[in-house]
């Protein structure tokens, strides 16, 4: 039996909204330590990795490891029926073919339950190496969202260069060119408004803006985002979801033919 209860149900709603356009389906792998998901986009150039820890839930029980195949568009339809203040409980019997979602209003005067049909999904699990990156940038997630949104209106790809001067995002397209440079800035009093650049060596990589823009759909989940870059390797974009876990995106760089 699997059961996970979260008082702040809006977090689950935001998570699924952040992922559903990038990945259409994937397995929720549940075990006694929590719920994880690893999924690729349809062209297999980016990878999403979601980790929700058992102790981040208000109640968590998982007697047996299970892979629950989820269609995210369908899960999104069901979660749209939950109120923002609702407590959400996920439930499944061992080897079940449905996942039950129970929504309880804050004052417990409305209780609803929905069964989501599960799918059988073959998925390969990739090993993400734990490595040191040449540059790590922590910045307000809203700032990242604004940069990639603005640049998407100008070009298709972005060159991200990290140097001791700061981190520069450059693009070009039919209308012209654009450069946005962010500097290390720890003066804001609130830590979530700071930009922290940890540079071991300069690095410059090109990425498809469409994906970076898609990752920013996770902005409502976290005040800060971390970008990690190393030459010839995928960019790693990470949002910490409070005490519950994290959502991580990896995107392969564009390289010259």
């Amino acid at each position: 039996m699997f059961e996970a209860r979260i008082t702040q149900g809006s977090v689950l709603k935001k998570l699924v909204e952040a992922l559903k356009e990038l990945v259409t389906e994937g397995n929720f792998d549940v075990s006694s330590t929590g719920l994880t998901l690893q999924a690729m986009d349809s062209s297999h150039v980016c990878l999403v990795s979601l980790t929700l820890r058992d102790d981040g839930f208000d109640h968590y029980r998982c007697d047996r490891n299970m892979a629950m195949g989820i269609h995210f568009g369908n899960l999104s339809k069901i979660l749209k029926c939950a109120g923002n203040e609702d407590t959400i409980t996920l439930k499944a019997e061992d080897n079940a073919d449905t996942l039950t979602l129970m929504f309880e209003s804050a004052n417990q005067d409305r209780i609803s339950d929905f069964d989501l049909k599960l799918m059988s999904i073959e998925s390969e699990h990739l090993g993400i190496p734990d490595q040191d990156y040449s540059a790590e940038i922590k910045m307000p997630s809203a700032e990242y969202q604004r940069i990639v949104r603005d640049l998407t209106s100008i070009g298709d790809t972005v060159l991200i260069s990290a140097t001791k001067e700061g981190i520069k995002f450059s693009t070009s397209g039919d209308v012209g060119t654009a450069n946005i440079t962010l500097r290390h800035n720890t003066t804001p009093e609130k830590p979530e408004e700071q930009t922290i650049i940890d540079l071991k060596e300069p690095v410059a990589l090109t990425f498809a803006l469409r994906y970076l823009n898609n990752f920013s759909k996770a902005t409502p989940l976290a005040p800060q985002v971390k970008l990690s870059l190393t030459k010839d390797l995928p960019i790693f974009v990470e949002y910490q979801v409070g005490d519950l876990g994290n959502v991580r995106f990896f995107l392969a760089p564009k390289i010259d033919d």
Binding site: M40, V45, L47, L233, P234, F250, L251, A252, D257
Partner: peptide, 13 residues
């Protein structure tokens, strides 16, 4: 420009 698939960076675990 070309783009490799993500599995070419991260092997199967």
């Amino acid at each position: 420009m070309k783009q490799k698939q993500i599995s070419q960076f991260f092997g199967a675990s």
